[in-house]
Design a protein around this nucleic acid. Structure first.
Lengths: 142, 142
DNA sequence: TCGTTATGCAATTCACGAAAGCAGAAGAAT
DNA sequence: ATTCTTCTGCTTTCGTGAATTGCATAACGA
């Protein structure tokens, strides 16, 4: 059970936008360089984020991406789901037909408990929260 | 972030032993067939469990594996750590030198919170607990 | 019209989870 | 002793999906 690079880069990317404050439109090249993320990979991730309305894209010179809402209104969970789709620890959780005795599986029950706690934590933290944590630690944009 | 097959098989394997009750020595072939797990893969997993003292192995005719302790004394966490080693969502959590600004990373802080909750849940459930859940649902050994 | 930036899809690389194979050791049964 | 069973400890293979790259195209501003 490990956090994926896509998830990691996605969060770091939007946090960069938060750190820049307001609604500054920022090109991927800048984010990628500042946070040392492969640019094309980041592009893919931000396209997902754009589809889910987390960020908005602007083309052309001085284009880039910007948050669509106030960071306080965007939960970490929303970002993760935009990147990875619905979040589940086992295939049989969303799809009970995946194996033949989901209704008797204690492991599935336990993981549903674990997953619930996990989702609650991700939902109870917004990008603004994380931004403040970083700010308190003196993180700079570049 | 997904539960691995090794983790899944490991838990299901020991739960099979729990369901058989007591300290019955059970060969891998039986467990593998009953729970539809690739036998050689299960062997690898149980070797780890044996090294960590979760189960004990017996060779020869009528050999196999048995739990070393009462299921109520074995937490799910113990089983998972035996299989996967120390549990971390990001490499930089156990190894702060993995990236160059772990001390300023809000994502790392958040994941440490998530991880804590996760570990607590796994530690607060024993194999006996899961065994009872299954029992209540009418799970049979074979 | 030109340069910049995102878009969308295709292709590729790569790591690791997952699984299989095999020779050998240990042990029980007879 | 011999034989059969079962674990042990490698080695190797396979497959999937993560991670990354590439390219042609579309949109947009200057």
């Amino acid at each position: 059970m490990q956090f994926t690079k896509a998830e990691e880069y996605g969060i770091l990317g939007v946090l960069y936008l938060v750190a820049k404050g307001g609604t500054a439109v920022t090109p991927l090249s800048e984010i990628a360089e500042a946070r040392e993320i492969p640019e094309k990979f980041l592009a893919k991730i931000f396209q997902s984020l754009a589809r889910f309305g987390i960020v908005r894209s602007y083309r052309g010179v001085r284009g880039g991406f910007a948050l669509t809402r106030n960071p306080a209104e965007i939960t970490v969970m929303a970002v993760l789901e935009a990147i990875q789709g619905p979040y589940h620890l086992l295939r049989c959780i969303p799809d009970p037909d995946h194996c033949d005795n989901t209704d008797r599986c204690a492991l599935r029950d336990l993981l549903m408990v674990v997953e619930k706690g996990l989702v609650e934590t991700f939902e109870s933290h917004t990008l603004a929260d994380l931004g403040e944590w970083e700010h308190a630690k003196g993180v700079t944009v570049i």
